[in-house]
Design a binder for these strands. Structure first.
Lengths: 409, 409
DNA sequence: TATTTATGTCTTACGGCTGAACTTATCCGC
DNA sequence: GCGGATAAGTTCAGCCGTAAGACATAAATA
């Protein structure tokens, strides 16, 4: 009997509890983004809340096991010494899972970003049976969960990375060409305890989030990890993700970043997608190996060896890939105006040989080149990045909405 | 003396007043998004706030001239008749300004989306003098402001659209090739009263926002304008904008959507940007006219006439443009996963002749084509869309942050 | 005219933040 | 070694905005 003209959608009404949730998240964020342990007073000064308010909020976060009070550092100056606050280790954890063409496995991270448990099984999963493989992964996940629970940790959730077109909201895998899977509900096939919420995601997208440095904790002694960047992951196919402010740009269905099928040359070779001259046919792994005169089942190491040995065919193939990649990336940058590109997958190893050609093309084709430089970087997180990204994504939600994990009183 | 480890950036602390601001915006949004006038009770039911709270908030919006109480409609059913609420007409207004290659002018919109004042001067402004032109526009703006103020309206702000690379935050125009302008501060040259805040923006971006208004009606089956879409505007150059949920995707500098320089064929003709085979060289206005064998200073009407007459060269040029556009848009859609494309500028007139070729290319090249259809539509707002978009953008801020316009008590 | 139904207003209660006073814990100078 | 200075963290009254529910209002209906 709702005759309302106003829509029911949109943001919810704000009440007193909303205030608290907001400020709780604000305080959590302050602790997790701080470059070193900070005190309640620091947070008060930085946020504009009073020390009184910050204190009650921090107390709740400590009680929930999200924030830990460290032993006091030896004070440097007059005044009561501060109680240093930091992300709580080995308390709340997130589980990242992945099935890819060459392995399946899981990784558990705590709020400090430390790996507290991991299990990876290399395997050839081309054209595999989804029920069998996901059942196996489910048992791996159960073992990981049991081991961390035995140490008193609480699992905040899990994220399953799959190399294909994924509908995150519906929890459906539409198609994963290389696995030979399509139209299935991977979460159900995992058969995990229903008390652990599992979401699925695209492998490249989650690998991208692993690069987003301090998504959970600032662990980049390596340097400043960018918070806005394009992540391009090369393998047989070439996937990518648009990360803005450490979050994915999601598009309408989550199917962004299909840079592998951007046109490089319409007169080029036919792609397995049916069109011609896609980037993948120049800079995909198979195309690179074929162009270098290596067997298709060779690995990147063989290609790098050929490059190091100065093989002309290998050098030519990689240069052609660099030009194609630069051309496609230039279009990408022209369209989304993000000028830091992290290269993952097979590209970090090839970057010394790719870079010159790619950058030449970028300089020539990026319209804003006179005002800004496009930076090509090797992605810092390499090994099974989607596992880390998935676990981090779970934990990011904890930090951004801690109220769900904080008790009533 | 701030030794804080926590950063001072990030969202501000939430206090009681924040609650009120949030809910005030919520209520305003409900009124402005409703498909027909709604009552206080409607808003309460839709938002989850109590009628009491909604009442006090609505009263404030009415007092501020943002919302108007309409005369009661003849009641259809038992019970006290509702007081219909709607955007207030001729109260708060926004000013859109534009300098483009063929005209300069301004347009004033009120909160209902009605044009309450307008002044457009056609003129050839290729390689013009910025100080002279902007001074002239400033006087036009002053006249418009004076006339609406004489009727008691309040000007919420102004937005100046320019056809070039614009740094919105710094208020600088980096370069506008067709105007022959570069490196200047257009707001200062306008010389407006400082009590009217003026921001600048890219012309294509603001024209895109004009398409996203709630009052905009598409002439396709659905009728309502989409809230997430790509807007592609063709002229000599081809600009575009990414609109998500009625907001621009901004990128790092605001320089998104340079689709005119996406590669269509690396072996193609050299572009004025220095690279080869850019979309602009196939689907830009000059390229189209040249391809059709028409003089470069002809207008779109001449091209359409040639098409209607069945001129083979014109038909071939437009088909080639359609294919090129489809190829570039396919890449665009593959990258940002937005499958509604509004075509503006010269394209609506050419759409009947472009569509088949463009859609064929889209079907072949969009990877998600089996799961979603890419829709090509003529942009509903045509004439000087950036004027409307600029004014709307000013008013959107009023609706989204009404607290700035609501008095203390 | 009395009843029903729905809108809009009024009053009291509650929860969360503020501000100021207070306690705690360390350093510094004598 | 002791008192003052300094700064972190805590306690408590007060304010403010929303919730809950009673009340007033206005029209249709029997």
């Amino acid at each position: 009997m709702n005759r309302s003209a106003a829509t029911r959608s949109g943001p919810p009404a704000a009440r007193q509890a909303t205030l608290r949730e907001h400020n709780l998240a604000l305080v959590a964020r302050a602790v997790f983004e701080a470059s070193r342990p900070c005190s309640r007073a620091d947070i008060a000064a930085a946020s504009g809340l009073t020390r009184a308010t910050v204190s009650t909020l921090v107390d709740r976060l400590v009680a929930a096991g999200i924030v830990a009070e460290l032993p006091p550092a030896t004070p440097q100056r007059a005044g009561r010494p501060a109680v240093p606050l930091a992300p709580a280790p080995r308390s709340l954890v997130g589980l990242g899972l992945e099935v890819n063409v060459d392995y399946l496995g899981g990784r558990v991270l705590d709020l400090t970003g430390t790996v507290v448990a991991e299990h990876v099984d290399p395997d050839d999963l081309h054209d595999s049976d989804p029920a069998e493989v996901l059942g196996r992964l489910g048992r791996i996940a159960q073992d990981l969960l049991a081991s961390v629970r035995a140490e008193g940790m609480t699992v905040a959730g899990a994220r399953l990375a799959l190399p294909g077109l994924v509908d995150t909201r519906a929890g459906r895998l539409e198609v994963a060409p290389n696995l030979g899977w399509s139209h299935l509900d991977p979460v159900q096939l995992l058969g995990l305890d229903p008390d652990v919420p599992v979401e699925i995601g695209n492998e490249a997208k989650l690998a991208a989030l692993a690069q987003a440095g301090r998504g959970v904790v600032l662990d980049d002694a390596t340097g400043t990890a960018p918070s806005t960047f394009l992540y391009v992951s090369g393998d047989v196919g070439i996937g990518s993700a648009i990360v803005v402010d450490r979050r994915l740009f999601h598009g309408q269905h989550g199917w962004t970043g299909e840079v592998g099928h951007v046109v490089v040359d319409p007169g080029g070779p036919r792609c397995r997608c049916g069109a011609t001259g896609c980037l993948e046919q120049y800079a995909g792994k198979d195309a690179l190996l074929r162009g270098a005169g290596l067997p298709v089942d060779a690995d990147t190491g063989a290609l790098v060896a050929a490059l190091d040995a100065g093989e002309p065919r290998a050098l030519a193939a990689v240069e052609r890939a660099g030009t194609a990649l630069g051309s496609a990336l230039a279009g990408y940058v022209n369209l989304v105006d993000i000028d830091t590109v992290l290269l993952g997958g097979i590209y970090p190893a090839l970057l010394p040989y790719l870079r010159a050609a790619a950058e030449a093309e970028l300089r020539a084709r990026v319209l804003a080149a006179p005002w800004t430089d496009v930076v090509l970087l090797a992605a810092p997180v390499g090994d099974h990045a989607a596992l880390t990204g998935g676990a981090r994504e779970v934990l990011r939600h904890v930090v951004e909405e801690p109220s769900a994990w904080v008790g009533e009183d």
